[in-house]
Design a protein around this nucleic acid. Structure first.
Length: 814
RNA sequence: GCCCGGGUAGCCGAAUUGGUCCAGGCAGCGCGCUUAAAACGCGUGACCCCACGGGGUGUGCGGGUUCGAAUCCCGUCCCGGGCACCA
């Protein structure tokens, strides 16, 4: 009997060294006839050292990558770092350390730990988004979008984070506060760079149907795009002789429009009425934060503008108001108000004593409470009265069209992506501003525009780059006159919106990628990451993919065919956080229990898509299991006569091994239920431990024991690759990752007999064992004989027997 | 307020998607090995009755459909997440 104990560190070091020496996980871009599979985890942001979330995402991804390799796929599984960004820069402001230094120190630590975890990465494709060899192509791609009008500069009211001292994208503002700083965001009128993501709203929406993503992520993207269909309707204002278009989803309620409201930001408000009362209201509304203004239970305030517009359907003059519940950013910044059928308008009208006119009845004819936003027949609506409002919708829009007063229209909640940042540690925007030529792109052969070193990283309301005068002052690439570089940098989300394409052809120095190479790998077959990226990153990456397809750089429409969002690991039911002091450090775990135990346990704590509650004792259980497997393998190996192909009559252990193969294959391959997959291997190992002595007593038993132990190693390999490799090699002399995934023998999956339970309306009346191979027809006959269909039982006549395949029989009585 | 998820042993969690519950792990209890401890192994493990064969009740709560419900339907209560003045 082997006396050695399981020493994960030694085993893990040995295999990691071998994988590094042999470059086992590198994959060539040559097609070798196997189907490709691109498995990718969301790229990590290197800050400090990896946390438990990183351990989880790579445990998940690596299990998939290994499973794919062993089921005959050519697997691309690369890794890189999202290296630009504010935390490194804020650290630099505090300490004076160059962000590059702190970032690269962190990258080194990440790389070291990923290796300690034994993740099967193709390191030949490693990249960092802060490297000039990478951001050269970020800039190059930016210029392609610029050429096609998809990157543009405009003056707009933007979100200004007063703590970070930079503008933020809409997506980075949560409840009126900066996503990182938590500071109340201010509106500032600034000239900024945008990507025209709104051009892609419909495609981003429609193509959600073509990808296999979690339902909740799809829903979040749908809501974020926020497509609504309705009509644009023109209201004429005699006072300024101006037409004011409004967007409405309910043109069928036009006859109920009894007033008209403009947003405080609307440029015409003060032209219509410059009274002190109006001016005061506008001033107050504009200085309020988005948060205050958006508060849910806030009263509807507003001021009359002292003039009217004409309702196009009936020629009525209706009063105009300015009110802050109307948003300048959505629609046209003005609305028609229908208090009878809109809650907000109702509230405002009630407060200001405005007429509330019902134009749609509840369908049952009874007048319900107002406001009523449902469907029903139209009343008090001129020639449309009596129609159902759904029919009237189309007819009213058609009539408006014929009068030149309106048309069908679609509106989106989605805004263009604001990409410029007034910060240092980011990718420079490759544009030169020339007095003569305007905005001039830096020629491709002068890329990259290298980020210069500076002394002072502190933002002062403009980019710190502006202080680097040697760098800023250049000759215009077009006319040669003195000009200035753009000093804003790009949002880091730009860097991470195309990195998955770069991996395909990571060392190409002629182009961001070769189109054919890209076509051979894209799309990513399985993408894995946190649900917190449901909108930002995942929307931007989809947009980039579509935009590059349009520009002619690639041939796919969607970057990520399947998405897996992992749940958060908690500890004792609470989120892990430094302030709570309940953080589990991957490094300490790996030191104590080994990477295999840490990785297996994290996949065992629950279904990886849901959370999973960390329990310090729990990982010891997994460690015990791995130790048992190790000892079983050592025992089998010590029995040198035993062959690894099983001989003799199948015993329970052999059946269990095949059962485990079947279970792990389904649970890992199809359902991605890692918990039950690992539990199946645990059961197999428990079976081995339990029957060790009796099995090892005979040559047949020993062969089955050896086979079962090798199978356990093979099956645990995707979760615990080091021990899996060790066990398999020990027992078979072969490398497990070069072996095809095992197949279960169907004949061994079944047990000899099954117990048939005869029930009468849920009550057990009889039970007996039959051979497992019994056919359904025979089973039913047995049931009839046993329970005497047609006779009476418990005073009731049995009318039929329902046979559930292989399991039980139910009798129906009346 | 609206839209998704989810409530199963003391805890984490399974349940082949409608097939007769609770696999696996943790904690607990008992036993073996041991001078002892640790480690390891074996057994036990929802609740209530019991003549020791078994019987009854059990998946947040109340109904319903079905031969059969953790699973489907209706109502209700909690917990988590997303959205929220978007006209």
């Amino acid at each position: 009997m082997a006396a050695e104990s399981y020493e994960p560190r030694a085993i893990e070091r040995r295999w990691q060294q071998l994988w590094a020496d042999e470059r086992t996980w590198e994959v060539s871009n040559e097609d070798d006839g196997r189907p490709k599979s691109y498995v990718l985890e969301m790229l990590p942001y290197p800050s400090g050292e990896p946390h438990i979330g990183h351990l989880k995402v790579y445990s998940v991804g690596d299990a998939i990558a290994h499973f794919k390799r062993r089921t005959g796929h050519r697997v691309l599984h690369p890794l890189g770092y999202d290296a630009f960004g504010l935390p490194a820069e804020n650290h630099a402001i505090k300490t004076g350390q160059h962000p590059r230094e702190s970032t690269e120190a962190s990258i080194a630590e990440f790389r070291r730990q990923f290796n300690d975890w034994g993740v099967s990465i193709d390191w030949s494709r490693e990249l960092g988004t802060h490297e000039p060899s990478y951001y050269r192509w970020t800039q190059w791609l930016f210029l392609r979008l610029f050429e096609h009008g998809l990157a543009y500069r405009k003056d707009a009211a933007v979100n200004w984070d007063p703590v970070e001292e930079t503008v933020l994208a809409n997506e980075q503002v949560i409840d009126g506060r900066g996503e990182r700083s938590g500071a109340l965001v201010e509106k500032r009128q600034l000239e900024q760079w945008f990507f025209k993501i709104t051009d892609y709203a419909d495609r981003l929406l429609d193509d959600l149907d073509t990808i296999d993503w979690p339902q909740n992520v799809v829903t979040m993207q749908r809501n974020w795009i926020g497509r609504s269909e309705g009509a644009q309707v023109v209201f004429h204002c005699d006072a300024l002789d101006t037409d004011y278009p409004v967007f409405t989803t309910r043109p069928d309620t036009l006859f109920g429009a009894t007033f008209f409201v403009m947003a405080p930001e609307h440029p015409d408000v003060l032209k219509l009425d410059d009274s002190p009362e109006v001016a005061d209201y506008v001033r107050r509304a504009l200085t309020e934060s988005a948060e205050e203004r958006g508060a849910e239970d806030r009263e509807k305030t507003g001021v009359a503008l002292g003039t009217t517009v004409t309702n196009p359907v009936n020629g009525e003059q209706i009063p105009m108001y300015v009110a802050d519940y109307v948003l300048m950013e959505y629609g046209t910044g003005a609305i028609m108000a229908v208090p009878a059928h809109d809650e907000r308008d109702f509230e405002f009208a009630t407060k200001h004593g405005i007429e509330i006119r019902r134009v749609i009845e509840a369908p049952d004819g009874e007048d319900g409470e107002l406001p009523y936003s449902g469907d029903g027949p139209m009343v008090d609506s001129g020639r449309f009265a009596g129609l159902h409002n759904r029919e009237a919708f189309a007819q009213i829009v058609e009539w408006l069209g014929s009068e030149g007063k309106g048309e069908l229209a679609v509106n989106y909640r989605l805004r263009d992506w604001l990409l410029s940042r007034q910060r240092y540690w980011g990718c420079p925007i490759p544009i030169v501003h020339c007095e003569q030529c305007g905005m001039v792109p830096v020629p491709d052969d002068q890329l990259p525009v290298v980020l210069p070193d500076i002394e002072d990283y502190k933002p002062k309301g403009r980019s710190p780059l502006a202080a680097a005068e040697d760098w800023v002052n250049v000759d215009c690439p077009k006319c040669g006159a003195p000009a200035k570089r753009e000093t804003d940098t790009m949002d880091t989300f730009v860097d991470s919106s195309w990195y998955f394409m770069r991996y395909c052809d990571a060392r190409n120095d002629q182009a961001p990628w070769d189109r054919d190479v890209l076509a051979s790998w894209m799309p990513v077959d399985q993408y894995i990451g946190g649900v917190e990226h449901a909108i930002l990153h995942l929307m931007y990456a989809r947009f980039f993919t579509k935009a590059f397809a349009d520009v002619g750089l690639l041939d796919v429409q969607e970057p990520f065919a399947r998405l897996f969002t992992q749940g958060m690991v908690t500890r004792d039911g609470a989120k892990m956080s430094k302030s709570k002091g309940n953080v589990v450090s991957p490094r300490e775990l790996v030191d104590e229990f080994g990477a295999d135990a840490a990785r297996s346990y994290i996949l065992y704590v629950g279904h990886p898509a849901e959370g999973g509650d960390w329990n310090d004792k729990g990982i010891e259980g997994i460690h015990r299991f791995l130790s048992r497997l190790w000892r079983a393998a050592a025992d089998a190996a010590a029995n040198t006569e035993a062959s690894d192909s099983p001989t003799g009559e199948p015993t329970a252990v052999l059946r269990k091994a095949h059962w485990a193969i079947d279970k792990v294959t389904t649970d890992l391959g199809e359902r991605f239920a890692t918990h039950t997959a690992i539990a199946a291997v645990i059961e197999l190992v428990n079976e081995l431990t339990k029957h060790r002595d009796e099995l090892l007593a005979t040559p047949e038993g020993a062969s089955q024991y050896r086979f079962a132990a090798a199978t356990a190693g093979s099956l645990i390999f995707p979760f615990a690759p080091h021990l899996g490799s060790e066990v398999y090699e020990l027992l078979t002399g072969r490398r497990v990752w070069e072996e095809p995934w095992p197949e279960a023998d169907p004949a061994l999956l079944e047990t000899d007999t099954v117990t048939i339970v005869i029930q009468l309306n849920g009550k057990v009346v009889d039970r007996f064992d039959v051979a497992a191979e019994i056919s359904d027809a025979e089973l039913e006959q047995l049931a009839r004989d046993s329970a005497k269909v047609g006779e009476r039982l418990d005073g009731r006549e049995i009318v039929k027997a329902i046979v559930v395949p292989g399991r039980l029989v139910n009798l129906v009585a009346k």
